[in-house]
Amino acid sequence: MSSTTADAHAGGHGHGHDHPKHLAHHFETLEQQYGSGKLGIWTFLLTEVLFFSALFVAYTMYRAQYPEVFQFASQYLDTNLGAINTIVLLFSSLTVAWGVRNAMLGQHKMLCINLLLTLACAGGFMGIKYVEYSHKFHEGTLWGGHVDSIFKADPADISETMKEHSHAWNGDGELVAVKDLDPVFRQRLGLFFAVYFCLTGLHGIHVLIGMILLTWLLLRAMKKEFGPDHFGAIDFGGLYWHLVDLIWIFLFPLLYLIS
């Protein structure tokens, strides 16, 4: 029944079978083919959750062990940029979900627009991430022992956002509060940034892979390859993109909102 669609499938598959154009030979029906793909992508998403879980467990262990370190270090992250990035990703999730709907209904033009919007959001997300990362490299809020450099930084090199934590800065550009802290505590600040860079870095790699995937889907959508009986690739690519969003939904409060 699904084989009779308004979507024109004029030719190209010229070996006189009576099966639907998009049905691969090793499947009985389109439903079976779609169901198999769905099972496949969900199994992949399961491995993705477990993949990320190692870093989430590392985060939890270290935060449980050194809650004061996480609380202190978290103030060096820009909550506004994190919140904007959250909204950007949520919007991209909306456009991807909308795109899946477009593909199901054979709305080629809207599908292309939604995929383009999603790509733009992904680019925006990476752009904001770049701003955040370069800030941290500039200010030396980095992993491991590198974090120590923030205590030696030239005050002229310290941005206004850093100075806003003024209770911690004195006229010499030193973090007064930190100076008085236990040296071991200072050393451990790098732990937070190590976890931060690993988690957001791995997530960022997933966004980049998602952008490649979205570009490929967009190119196919522009050739009007998707329709009511053939939207699996859009659906599965979308599911991957939603998972990237899901991970960020948890990363944002865990990293940026430690009060």
């Binding site: 699904s2 959250t86 909204i87 919007f91 909306l94 979900a97 909308w98 709907r101 009511p228 939207f231």
Partner: peptide, 22 residues
Amino acid sequence: GLAHPVPLKLLFAVFFTLVGLT
């Protein structure tokens, strides 16, 4: 049925709820 398009209204409602929760 192969295709099950989610109503547009619902998609937008979910998006705005997510923004609100953020």
